[in-house]
């Protein structure tokens, strides 16, 4: 599959600060690609370069084969900035007509397209001037204007950040509905959004991509599965002796699990006394060996549950290390 967006060694510096450090990305055409990172990671800087608003100090990027900021790239893409700003004296319909006009779209085509876009973003019944809009309404209008040219590549900077839960759901559904037809590249720090709609994800931290993969591979590669265990007498041991050598119950179990090669992380649950939480790379082996380890310690196993690790945990694992 061809790439709609390719970035090679992209670097951007602001004085001594390196905002982007040799970033490489490949966004397949038709995919929904999440660009994830904590605040200040460099996501907005990246989008500013891709839209031609800023220049890179090194490296190169191609949007549908065209350099960022070129007339061809701009005519094939749609963009929503993190805080979209409009002419307050205009109305939504007028702004979309104006935005479409900048793409050279004929008036007749716009008269057909604009009402559909307003309907899509839930602004079809709003006739007031944009100056009186809430932040959420501006965000919705921002999404509509980014779609006015039916772009092949849609770039969204924090598209759900100003929306209420219902608005967020609508926008995510809209993004998901574009999959296969339009390439969507969106930055966010809301992990649940990425997990919900993205095919692929890149995690940016301190200007560098620390991971790029599809979400399932990413989870498999970085953490695999979580186990939750409760043993008889675990509460008293865990409550008092986590980390203490020679403890009984949960503390003994934590000590026993720490040396196993298939355990990457084990700790007492902070939310539920007596509960031990472990991250394991080989779930089948863990299911076989944990009951035996518990028995060897002379404990009884009350509970053994496994679950898939969330993207949030992967994110914290990758990004938290540098903080």
């Amino acid at each position: 599959m061809a790439n709609a967006l390719e970035v090679r060694g992209l670097t951007k510096r602001f004085g001594d600060l390196t905002a982007l450090n040799r970033v490489d990305l490949a966004v397949p055409e038709g995919s929904v690609y999440g660009f994830l990172g904590p605040n200040g990671a460099g996501k907005t800087t990246m989008l500013r370069i891709l839209t031609g608003l800023a220049r890179a100090d090194g490296g190169e990027a191609r949007l549908l084969g065209h350099p960022p900021g070129s007339a061809q790239a701009r005519s094939l893409t749609g963009f929503l900035p993190d805080v979209p700003a409009f002419y307050p004296w205009m109305r939504a319909e007028g702004f979309l007509q104006f935005a479409g006009g900048l793409f050279g779209i004929e008036r007749a085509a716009l008269e057909e397209r604009v009402p559909k876009l307003l309907e899509l973003v839930g602004l079809s019944r709003v006739d007031s001037r944009i100056g009186g809009y809430s932040r959420g309404m501006r965000q919705r209008l921002g999404i509509a204007q980014a779609l006015v040219n039916a772009p092949r590549l849609l770039m969204l900077d924090e598209p759900t950040s100003a929306l209420d839960p219902l608005g967020r759901k609508d926008v995510l559904e809209m993004i998901a509905s574009l999959a296969g037809r339009t390439t969507v590249f969106f930055s966010t720090h809301i992990l649940a959004d990425v997990e919900r709609v993205c095919d692929k994800v890149a995690i940016l931290d301190h200007g560098s991509v620390v991971a790029e993969s599809d979400i399932h591979s990413l989870k498999a590669r970085y953490a695999a599965h979580r186990l939750e265990l409760r043993v008889e007498g675990g509460a008293e041991g865990a409550g008092s002796a986590i980390g203490a050598a020679g403890g009984t119950g949960a503390a003994s179990l934590i000590a026993a699990l720490k040396g196993r090669p298939w355990v990457t992380k084990v700790e007492a649950s902070s939310s539920e006394p007596g509960l031990v939480s472990a991250v394991v790379t080989d779930l089948a082996r863990a299911r076989r060996e944990v009951p035996r380890i518990v028995a060897d310690l002379g404990l009884g196993l009350e509970r053994l549950e496994s679950g898939e690790i969330s993207l949030e945990e992967v994110f914290v694992e990758l990004v938290g290390a540098g903080r």
């Binding site: 839209t51 031609g52 608003l53 007339a71 701009r74 005519s75 893409t77 963009f79 900035p81 805080v83 979209p84 700003a85 409009f86 002419y87 935005a99 900048l102 793409f103 050279g104 921002g142 204007q145 040219n149």
Partner: peptide, 13 residues
């Protein structure tokens, strides 16, 4: 105000 961003990311030089 930020209005230039929305305008200049469209094909207006």
């Amino acid at each position: 105000k930020g209005t230039a961003v929305l305008v200049l990311t469209k094909p207006l030089s």
